[in-house]
Amino acid sequence: MKTYTVMLPAAGSGRRMGAGFNKLFLEMAGKPILIHTLDVFEQDPCCTGMILSVKEEEKRQIEEMLDRFGITKVVALVEGGAERQQSVAACIHAHRSGEIVLVHDAARPFIKREVIHELVDVAHVHGAAIAGVQVKDTMKYASVGIVESTADRSKLWAIQTPQAFRYDLLKEASEKAEAEGFLGTDESMIVERLGHPVRVVESTYDNVKMTTKEDLLFGEVLLKQRRQEDFS
């Protein structure tokens, strides 16, 4: 099996969650969201290390959290930037070894291991691979509130994380974006600007990002369901 390092931007806020603090510290089933996510990679033998971008003022709290919950694979805590892309760039600079790197939302604790491994395999062969699911709803173009056309949803994917890349490719894309002042919405976007093809790996619909209070409720249901599956 091929190994990888995972980079996790963890310097966000709880604005949309209404928490008033970093939403990753909110708990589900007695553990912070952040720990649920990190534990996925902690338990994966193919993961050789985790790099987290964090707020400087939260660094000690996160270190204590890692120790409390037995997370041992974090190899670096770097200071995050004002934007996600800057936080990922800080992780890229801190990376020391390993050909394949993943970037994953720290607020997505329900990614499945088989999806991770397929992403790593595809990135190893093709250079870049991203997780996604095909959209279920009818999608329409309506720039000013009036329908212009209906999109072919068979060609539309809702993109998630992880996103997997050869390290040198992601580093080149990050440095080019920084030099040109370009701000992308995800890592795939800056790699696409190099003209490099990005493959889509089918993920699962329960790989949701914990963003709102409703997501937390859904997360509790998923945790309960997975515990039942483990004991069945």
Rank of each mutant, 00 (worst) to 15 (best):
10 A>H: 01
12 G>Y: 06
14 G>P: 12
16 R>Q: 10
18 G>A: 01
20 G>N: 08
24 L>R: 07
26 L>D: 11
30 G>H: 06
36 H>R: 09
37 T>A: 10
44 D>T: 09
44 D>G: 07
53 S>P: 03
54 V>M: 03
55 K>T: 12
56 E>W: 00
56 E>M: 10
56 E>F: 05
59 K>P: 11
60 R>W: 09
60 R>K: 08
62 I>C: 05
62 I>M: 14
64 E>P: 01
65 M>E: 14
74 V>R: 11
75 V>L: 03
77 L>F: 08
78 V>S: 07
86 Q>R: 06
86 Q>F: 06
93 H>Y: 12
97 S>N: 02
100 I>L: 09
104 H>L: 06
108 R>Q: 11
108 R>G: 12
121 D>Q: 05
124 H>V: 15
129 A>M: 04
129 A>H: 07
136 K>C: 03
142 A>T: 14
143 S>D: 15
152 D>V: 06
154 S>R: 09
158 A>Y: 08
161 T>N: 13
164 A>V: 04
168 D>F: 01
169 L>R: 02
173 A>Y: 02
173 A>N: 03
176 K>E: 11
176 K>N: 14
177 A>F: 03
178 E>N: 10
179 A>V: 01
186 D>P: 14
194 L>A: 03
194 L>I: 15
195 G>T: 14
196 H>S: 02
198 V>A: 01
200 V>F: 02
204 T>G: 12
204 T>W: 11
206 D>R: 01
206 D>A: 02
208 V>Q: 13
209 K>N: 15
213 K>G: 13
213 K>Y: 01
216 L>M: 10
216 L>N: 00
219 G>Q: 02
222 L>V: 14
224 K>R: 13
230 D>G: 10
